[in-house]
């Protein structure tokens, strides 16, 4: 089992949760600003992509990081 204290996992998990929250909230119309910006959707997608990159680096990283 990979080290879950690896900071890549922690960062990935955090932004995955926040990204899902943002993406989910973007489907609720009253969360968008009046001018129709869909920044929550766009940021949610970016956060999720970023988190997947971090989690991939955690899972398939060449060396497990020694986290103290």
């Amino acid at each position: 089992m990979k080290n879950m204290l690896d900071l890549r996992f922690v960062i990935g998990a955090f932004f995955l949760i926040v990204g899902i929250l943002l993406l989910g909230s973007s489907f609720m119309v009253h969360f968008t600003k009046e001018n129709g910006t869909t920044v929550n959707r766009d940021c949610g997608v970016v956060f999720i992509l970023f988190s997947l990159i971090m989690l991939a680096m955690w899972k398939w990283g060449t060396k497990p990081t020694e986290e103290a």
Binding site: M4, L5, V10, F14, V18, L21, F31, A68
Partner: peptide
């Protein structure tokens, strides 16, 4: 702030405190 904003702030606090608890075992 809406509920989602407070939720994100709380999630952050949980993560930072959780990091402290996990690292404690190695100190």
């Amino acid at each position: 702030l809406g509920l989602i904003d407070y939720s994100i702030i709380c999630i952050y606090f949980i993560f930072v405190i959780g990091i402290g608890f996990f690292i404690k075992r190695k100190v």
